[in-house]
Design a protein around this nucleic acid. Structure first.
Lengths: 264, 264
DNA sequence: CTAGATTTGTTCGTATGTATC
DNA sequence: TGATACATACGAACAAATCTA
């Protein structure tokens, strides 16, 4: 069962590349042997012997695992393919790449956030410990500071962190992943809209009020209250974002951007 | 700007591997030159000359793009790396791989589906054409046939297709992707639970009724009706799935599975 | 801090399989 | 049926990174 057998599938299409077979096998081995982050796979030479193939083939297989975020390669003694801690970021980055081809806007992101953040909020009711509440409070304080000092762009980004903290507390990895992913999309989208204006102040103030109300509801373990508050929070946030976006697009048309890569 | 420059990063981290630099560059080129699915990148020899490096390096770069679902390799004359149609499947498969490590169950999937399918249903109201309705009706007919003939497992799978059709009609690629992804997860999960019993009949009957009611609401362009019906549909489906799952787990404990790979 | 050992990263040359003409 | 063009795979080398003595 070790070496991949040269089993030619009778009809179905092209032969499966050796490197892909090996990548599959290694992937399964990582899962089967419960390899923890930091563990090492055998080095290239050992894998060559094990699978009875050449170096280039092994390297292609390892490259595949590397792109999938399962391992990183390390040089030097005791080097080799090191198993990685199931990177959320790798999967998210892949998804972003894919979605970047089809352009998306705030409305589409919030159509999801409206639903998912409500579900997320409800799912963490009763699961927040003292440490979690501390992080939430700290985040609120950071937002206050950012608003007071007029750092509007950073304020928007820190506010998103509030929702990442909730993801950490969720026991539903699917829900947590998707919310985190939406948050990262939002950070990307907001990065280039952080130019303007007085709207930011009203936005910041509203966010702070919502977050405070949410923390209160969490403390009271009032699931319905969380749902209601989160829903309103999302609707208002969308509204603000839309206005920011409209302003941004108007500015973009009137003033020629130097780099002029915006059109791409 | 063609060949990658041997720019040694002064302090920061490890040198970026040549193959990764090339992969990045090729990725950008695909985006920049608006390469359509079916277009060919230069073949290996041409890329070797262009980047001034060896075959192995090029192959690793192309492997990276292949794993990311951006290209497929083809042999023979006029072969080479062919640009792929922004594979939804590639991104979904990646995500599945990632999420497979942290085991998930029906409850977690449905916690999302309860929210997202409702949003999806609402978003396609008024966007369905005659062809779409035909597909939905055909799907319902296929479900009926599967139920009548007692093909319970396939019935469950065909039913999920109903929701994929709705995804096709959505104008929100994010929402569509995530719903499609949940559907694929469901297909995976249901595949190994398709053993039993009379519950399937009630389940199938309920699904058919729900789908019919949904189509009616879509025809009437009754957004609220769609929302209500979809919500109930999801709640009932979850309930059925949970019972199927419980039964499955019980069977698993009582009867030793021959292959015995279920524990893995 | 240098020197050597170990392991990945990269190159070249060659052979084989596969699809098109 | 070759003949051609291309990806796939092998094997041996050297370069660069990194740990250890």
């Amino acid at each position: 069962m070790n070496a991949p057998q040269g089993e030619p599938p009778p009809a179905p299409m092209r032969r499966i590349k050796l490197s892909d077979q090996i990548a599959e096998d290694l992937c399964r081995r990582i899962a089967r042997e419960r390899l923890a982050p930091g563990d090492r796979l055998p080095n290239e030479r050992a894998l060559m012997q094990h699978y009875g193939c050449a170096k280039g083939t092994i390297r292609e297989a390892l490259k595949s695992l590397e792109v999938q975020g399962l391992v990183t390669m390390q040089s030097g003694p005791n080097g080799g393919p090191e198993v990685r801690p199931i990177s959320v970021e790798a999967a998210a980055q892949q998804l972003r790449r894919f979605l970047h081809f089809q352009e998306l806007d705030f409305a589409q992101v919030y159509a999801l956030r409206r639903s998912l953040e409500v579900a997320l909020g409800a799912s963490v009711v009763g699961r927040l410990g003292a440490a979690d509440f501390q992080r939430l409070e700290d985040n609120i304080a950071a937002c206050e500071a950012a608003n007071a000092e007029g750092r509007r762009g950073t304020g928007r980004i820190v506010e998103v962190d509030f929702h990442d903290i909730l993801c950490d507390a969720s026991d539903n990895p699917l829900l947590a992943f998707m919310c985190r992913f939406l948050n990262s999309l939002l950070r990307d989208l907001v990065e280039f809209r952080s130019e303007s204006l007085t709207e930011h102040e009203a936005f910041g103030a509203h966010n702070l009020a919502s977050h405070r109300a949410l923390v209160s509801a969490f403390r009271a373990e009032d699931a319905d209250g969380v749902r209601r508050e989160m829903h309103e929070h999302m609707c208002c946030a969308e509204h603000f974002m839309q206005r920011l976006d409209a302003k941004f697009r108007k500015d973009l048309l009137s003033t020629r951007v130097p780099g002029a890569r915006a059109a791409e």
